[in-house]
Amino acid sequence: MTSREDEALARAAVTALTDQLALTPKPGLPDPSHRDHNTLRWSAKALTPGLAAMSAAARRTGEPTPGLRAELGAIGRCTEHSVGLAGGGHRGALWTLGLLVAAAAIEPREVPATAKRIAAHPDRGAPRRPSRGSSMSAKYGAAGARGEARAGFPHIRRAWAVLADGTPRPQSRLNALLTIMSTLQDTELLYTAGPTGLRHVQAGARRVLEAGGTGTAAGAKALTALDTDLHNRGWSPRGSAGLMAGALFLDALPATAQPAGTRTPVRGTAARRATGSIA
């Protein structure tokens, strides 16, 4: 049975996802001008019961055990089915937000670290057939969604720092998304565009940031060019979108519940240096 706290965490996570959907222009990703935008917003709401159930399971267990990991996996598969009936999508976001919501229910001031501890356990009930992401991880050595979680969501933490750099919305949110795109080994891009395409997208995101970000004329021009390029090529950095929703979820937590010692506001070139390079 879910509590008000569980339902509040679930609603915050879904709001983070719909806020991510509302960002525009998002290079290669659906935004409000996309024909499927309303369907994606509707199906995002179908995540709410499952996320609340994940929070309740974590709150009841109280620690990141193998049993909790198995229960979250089972809830996640049921939620995927419900989302499919509502229009589909959001699989990567469900993985990310489910772990973060569960972690917030256990230890709200250590969310990424607690999510890392949950993700460290295998999901023994998961289907044995390989997914796109796991296939690309095996082929190219990319971390993938599981590797990102098991590392404590470094890209979410970097994006979250950018959200604190003092830049007004929506520019700060777009800059945070581009920060993720600039280094993430996105397995969806590897599947559709290969390593060369992935590097092309990463370089395009870095060009926007190096031009001063989306709040400058040069950065906005580079963003528009990247958006047009990716849509024309049919390349979609979906992994970045799911992680961006995670960053927005962390940003929405009350200040008293935000992870301690993981956020240092960054500005200008410091924000770009914070992205590092793992690709």
Rank of each mutant, 00 (worst) to 15 (best):
G147K: 09
R150P: 12
A151L: 11
G152D: 11
F153N: 08
F153A: 10
F153T: 08
P154M: 06
P154V: 15
H155N: 11
I156H: 09
R157H: 07
R157A: 15
R157W: 01
A159K: 10
W160S: 12
L163T: 14
A164N: 07
D165A: 05
G166R: 08
P168I: 05
Q171E: 09
Q171Y: 11
S172H: 03
R173I: 02
A176Y: 00
L177I: 01
T179S: 13
L184V: 11
L184Y: 02
L184I: 14
L184E: 05
Q185G: 13
Q185L: 07
Q185P: 01
T187W: 01
E188I: 10
E188W: 02
L189G: 12
T192M: 06
A193R: 03
A193W: 04
A193H: 03
P195N: 05
P195T: 05
T196R: 14
T196M: 03
G197I: 01
G197D: 05
L198V: 08
H200T: 14
V201F: 05
Q202G: 06
A203C: 09
A203N: 13
A203P: 04
A205K: 05
R207C: 08
R207H: 11
V208H: 00
E210T: 14
T214V: 00
G215T: 09
T216K: 05
T216C: 09
A217C: 02
A217M: 04
A217R: 14
A217W: 02
G219Y: 00
A220Q: 11
K221I: 03
A222N: 12
L223E: 12
T224A: 15
A225Q: 12
L226D: 11
L226C: 13
D227Y: 04
T228E: 15
D229W: 03
L230N: 12
H231D: 03
N232V: 05
R233P: 04
G234M: 06
G234A: 04
W235N: 10
W235K: 07
R238Y: 08
R238N: 14
